[in-house]
Write a protein that binds this DNA or RNA. Structure first.
Lengths: 328, 328
DNA sequence: CGAGAATCGGTAAACGTTGACATAAAACTA
DNA sequence: TAGTTTTATGTCAACGTTTACCGATTCTCG
């Protein structure tokens, strides 16, 4: 590009003023010809931003992870920002390590899924280093950072109320990982629903799982071995609900004829299971989109007009084929 | 850090020589104290690398995506490189667009899952711009770039031979998306297996799907509506196999009593379905790990010692509860 | 036609780090 | 002790852009 300074090239490609149409055109053609692409590191250096957004999660369920990612990516799709995935196991036991990982990743901002979004130590670190963050369905300290929530207790209430309204009273409960605040919130909703129905929760019918299929299976076997057997099982996610269905079938029980099963999350497995599982749709995609949207707005300095830093999304009870009135 | 030049700080933190122990110690303490982190953009600028690895995929199946990611991340876990996810729909119809996306993302290297890994136009672009790439299970031009493969035809042979050896002869086939070369390779294996068993494929029992549950369901309904009904269904992935099981049940057929079903991929759904689905384990995680490993070796200039650029991984037939001899 | 404004192109400096090289100090060697 | 090597520290420039600023040219309008 003889006789043209880098400055002029920059101006031409960025559609900045002070360049004649002729030169701009010539530069653009030459750039295309030579496969020229501006160096992102140099741009980052001067702009003091990396145009990288991080996403950290722990939950193993593939469909949850993919929903999160797709939601965030949907908002990033113009290609200006890029999404870096940073899964991290056992946040609860070493939040500072995750903090260091995130801070060293050179991000402009980060999206935190549960349970990382509820780690005060982590939030402290991010705030101290002024790394903006969006929290997806946190359960505590809702005034810190950008927050996107769903009322887990209300959702838990809805699914429990559904079983109760069908007439079930002996209802087994398979809890998720107790270190996830979601587990607590959902349980709270279950309790309220039982109270509203004038029923009481039999603590002997509560088993702690960890959101995985395998542990869910053992938990279900345990519940189904009790006498009298529960007529329904409330699982705190769909993987465990699918496991409960498999356990019932392995014992020769029909679902929902002998046992109703309800899950939580509207994950892939709830649709591919047979019968399809009654569950709660958590709008994970939308929430991730929303969190990314507001995070980027903040990064781009448009946060003057944003409205509330917190936004709530509605759950949805999906009644499918795995629940029915109790036998007799 | 009075009286110490940036150069010295750089040397101290990078454990470079020419720094006294005392100064190094002091610098490190001060860095920790002040929460100092070197600017990655500046480092990238001078090193001429971004320490970003891209991962592009199209297949919608969540467990496949997560396996890919986790495999690659497993190799990247020291935190030196970061993983950027760049899903892209319909590569076949606009490979150049994906190419531009990848080239503009400022990556040091990129991992290509099917079907992107089989797009010559894309490979041309990447080679022209000297962006190193690792291809996960490509089916053509196996001499370009870093290649990690599995013998899809052999795997297809194995699963088809399993059904044939159980005595099935009327076998329905649900194909995946024909634009994925995997679909072709698997089909080739099915054909060989039929040939080896002295059986022939009834083309009327072949239906084209697209690897998704919903289309798989319709395809299965179509097959099961034929008379005489097939006694087994070979689905080209697990999502479609799960759909076939659901379709059978909705018609009142028992699996595997009335109908055997086999899938492909050993994805989550093959384990959470009931009965668990006979399938092929594609070592997606290991392949992604391997591709990342060799890509990074190439980036780090260790490619002098690498051995062959191509590596094959073995499939594994997992016989589970969804297959049995045909009725009567 | 001339004053002021808008437009065009260019130069210098900066972003934060590291490589190459120079100098100063300390540690050995004979 | 003088000479020589080793170690420590510092200076300069460079990576590839963009921002700030400056002069030169062209346009506008009284």
């Amino acid at each position: 590009m003889a006789g043209v300074t880098p400055k002029t090239v920059s101006r031409a490609l960025n559609d900045a003023p002070h360049v004649s149409k002729a030169v701009r055109q010539k530069v653009k053609e030459a750039a295309a010809e030579l496969d020229y692409l501006p160096n992102l590191a140099a741009q980052s250096l001067i702009a003091r931003r990396s145009y990288l957004i991080g996403l950290t999660y722990e939950r193993p369920s593939p469909s949850y992870v993919v929903d999160l990612q797709n939601g965030a990516l949907g908002r990033l799709e113009d290609g200006r920002y890029r999404l870096v995935v940073l899964p991290f196991a056992h946040v609860a036991s070493r939040p500072d390590e995750l903090g260091r990982l995130l801070l060293r990743a050179g991000l402009d901002g980060v999206l935190l899924a549960p349970p990382a979004c509820d780690q005060p130590v982590l939030l402290d670190m991010l705030e101290r280093h002024k790394l903006p963050f969006g929290r997806i369905t946190p359960h505590s300290e809702l005034d810190r950072g950008i927050v996107v929530t769903m009322d887990e207790a209300a959702a838990g209430h809805a699914v429990a109320a559904h079983l109760l309204s069908l007439g079930h009273r002996r209802i087994g409960i398979i809890l998720g990982d107790p270190s996830h605040a979601a587990s607590v919130g959902r349980m709270e909703g279950y309790r309220r629903a039982f109270g509203d129905a004038g029923a009481t929760i039999d603590e002997r019918l509560m088993v702690t799982g960890d959101f995985t299929y395998d542990v869910g299976y053992s938990a279900a076997r345990e519940l189904l071995g009790l006498a009298p057997r529960p007529t329904a099982i409330l699982a705190q996610n769909d993987d465990m609900a699918a496991a409960a269905i498999a356990a019932a079938r392995d014992l020769g029980l029909a679902v929902p004829g002998d046992l109703s099963v309800a899950g939580f999350d509207n994950s892939e497995v709830s649709r591919t299971a047979w019968p399809q599982i009654t569950t709660i749709n958590q709008p994970v995609r939308q929430m991730a989109w929303d969190a990314a949207d507001r995070l980027i707005a903040a990064l781009d300095g448009k946060s003057d007009v944003p409205g509330p830093k917190r936004r709530d999304h509605a759950h949805e009870l999906l009644v499918r084929a795995s629940t029915a009135p109790p036998p007799d």
